[in-house]
């Protein structure tokens, strides 16, 4: 464990060293939310001074890493590219001055910190089956997006989006609109729009069909 002020910018943001700007941005937002004053995850552990210090540290890391030039200079200064051993060495220098790495002393493997993101839950989907409302919701949660976020991006009314997820077809406008909504929804989630629309509209049509029949009798 390293004190916060000995952590490098990547560790502070809990992101990979080869993270793309997009990833850094996401990690930064995640970190800000985690260490916000009223954060559900943090408020019972940290005192007010703690979180503001952490937030300051996060801001510095973000500023340095988001600028291509300053990031390169920073990478050079911490010897990024040399090897992970160097990191470990500095870790132990912090811990005990000049003793050999703890991992060598104890002959244990340093646990590799898995820097997974929300996408790590990708495997909740096995890639088969219909794209029904529940599956769309699973993908949305996996992307860490609320319906409001989708609504803001797609400009589709929140109530239509929730009707799509809950398959309340009666609450949706005519078919051509639904098709458009589902396309936009799927594309926001980074899904194959064609596959999603084909699958979802089949559900939609079947339901409408049975609805018509029941009315007829």
């Amino acid at each position: 464990m390293k004190p916060l002020f000995d952590q490098d910018h990547y560790e502070v943001l809990e992101t990979r060293r080869d993270a793309a700007p997009d990833d850094i941005e996401r990690s930064y937002r995640m970190a800000l939310a985690t260490y916000a004053e009223d954060s559900l995850a943090g408020y019972s552990v940290f005192s007010e001074g703690d979180t503001s210090a952490i937030r300051e540290r996060i801001e510095v890391a973000y500023r340095v890493l988001m600028d291509e030039e300053s990031r390169r200079a920073y990478d050079d200064s911490i010897g990024f590219g040399a090897s992970d051993d160097l990191l470990e060495a500095s870790f132990d220098a912090v811990m005990s001055g000049d003793s050999p790495p703890v991992s060598q002393l104890l002959n244990i493997e340093e646990p590799k910190r898995e820097l997974e993101s929300i996408a790590a839950f990708e495997d909740v989907d096995d890639g088969s089956g219909d794209f029904d409302g529940a599956r769309l919701r699973r993908f949305r949660l996996r992307c860490g997006m609320e319906l409001e976020d989708i609504s803001r991006i797609t400009k589709i009314n929140n109530s239509y989006l929730s009707a799509i997820e809950e398959e309340r077809f009666a609450d949706l406008p005519s078919k051509v609109y639904v098709r458009g909504f589902v396309t936009a929804f799927a594309s926001t989630l980074g899904l194959d729009t064609k596959a999603v629309v084909t699958s979802y509209m089949k559900l939609h049509d079947e339901s409408q069909e049975s609805h018509r029949k029941s009315r007829f009798f």
Binding site: A33, T34, L40, F46, I118, F121, L141, E146
Partner: peptide, 22 residues
Amino acid sequence: TAEDVKLGFSIRSVCHKYFGIE
């Protein structure tokens, strides 16, 4: 909500930064 999903990541982060626990 998606906020609830993210809570797990936040708790993991707090465990790391506060306790030093993975």
